[in-house]
């Protein structure tokens, strides 16, 4: 972690910690805490996806499927087999990791957009399975009355408790990701992104690193899925379809593929946009999403995160300018 990241980390921590105190006291944004819980859950997914897109240069169109694998593992294990939710969570993550590994190894050996295609197909297959295995998943009508989470015998019911728990998990995931980026693996990954051939000839095990990151992103999605399940306490396949995978990609694109901070920013912005601010667009929402995705890819490849240093630069310039005068 470098100095900038440390500052950003502290700043964001403070912001997140203070937010409920402010929001709950202002009537018209009192429900923002609820939105932030979902934003936190989606941030976990987008962090993993950001590692994959920004640092391994691959795109996965199946994050919603991994999210769904985690969610349904938790749902089935707890409500049908009576497991403890905290045991079901790693189990779900394990399943997702295994599946990701099985898909990732052959797909990532190939060049270009093969992973995109494989994951696209795989995502749809998972969605079909969730709808078909009625005995286990409840089929298209889904599952209800899934138990909530408990910490040391204390049941998590209030939104604020959920908020702090989810965001501390996000922070832990972020710390881990930052650690990975500045480690040997991270340097190797960036080398892959720059020039795969060169990286390989320098002895970076490219395929191996890419598979590892893909599995890691699947695990993060699955954990997010588990939290989602126990928070909403019901499931239906509609929350895990291709549109959601596209939304996750959009979160990372808007935030900036090269920045983990951007991934969180993108997740928060899009969750709010989808649930609060874009409501006026209603039916046009799908067009707005498409346009945003297109604009982000065409005009702002670095995402919003790439604007931050520019804005700071402009700010600093004008400040020094003022001081000189």
């Amino acid at each position: 972690m470098n100095k900038k990241d440390r500052w950003a980390f502290v700043g964001m921590g403070l912001l997140i910690a203070v937010f409920p105190g402010v929001a709950l006291n202002v009537k018209c944004i009192s429900h923002y805490v609820d939105v932030m819980v979902f934003a936190g859950i989606f941030s976990l997914v987008s962090l993993g996806l950001c590692m994959l897109m920004g640092y391994a240069g691959q795109v996965s169109m199946a994050q919603a499927a991994f999210f769904g694998i985690g969610a349904y593992s938790s749902g089935i294990l707890t409500s049908r087999l009576g497991w403890n939710p905290w045991m079901a969570m790693p189990a779900g993550a394990g399943v997702a990791a295994l599946v990701a590994w099985i898909i990732g190894v052959p797909a990532l050996r190939l060049k270009g957009h093969y992973l995109a295609m494989a994951t696209l197909g795989f995502g749809v297959i998972v969605h079909i399975i969730l709808g078909e295995e009625v005995k286990w998943t409840g089929g298209p009508s889904g599952m209800v009355d899934i138990p909530g989470l408990q910490i040391a015998g204390w049941k998590l019911t209030s939104e604020v408790a959920w908020y702090y728990m989810i965001w501390s998990v996000v922070f832990m995931a972020l710390l881990f990701c930052l650690h990975v980026i500045y480690s040997r693996v991270g340097r190797g990954l960036r080398a892959i992104h720059e020039e795969e051939m060169a990286a390989e000839s320098m002895g970076v095990p490219t395929a191996c690193y890419k598979v590892q990151i893909f599995v890691f992103s699947a695990i993060l999605s699955a954990i997010a899925g588990s939290f989602y399940t126990h928070y909403v306490t019901c499931l239906n396949p509609g929350s895990f379809n291709l549109m959601w995978s596209i939304r996750f990609v959009l979160m990372v694109m808007v935030g900036g593929t090269q920045s983990l901070w951007g991934a969180i920013l993108g997740a928060v912005l899009l969750t709010f946009a989808g649930n609060e601010w874009l409501q006026i667009f209603s039916d046009f929402e799908i067009l707005v999403y498409g346009a945003m995705l297109l604009c982000a890819a065409l005009f702002l490849p670095g995402g919003l995160a790439s604007l931050v240093p520019k804005v700071i630069g402009v700010f600093r310039n004008s400040l020094t300018h003022l001081c000189k005068r």
């Binding site: 795109v59 596209i246 999403y289 995705l293 297109l294 890819a297 065409l298």
Partner: peptide, 24 residues
Amino acid sequence: NAGVLSLIIITIAVSILLKGSAML
């Protein structure tokens, strides 16, 4: 001049736009 990743996302974006316009 965009990379493969951007091109994938661009064509996906176009497909969303076409679908949305058709719906409207």
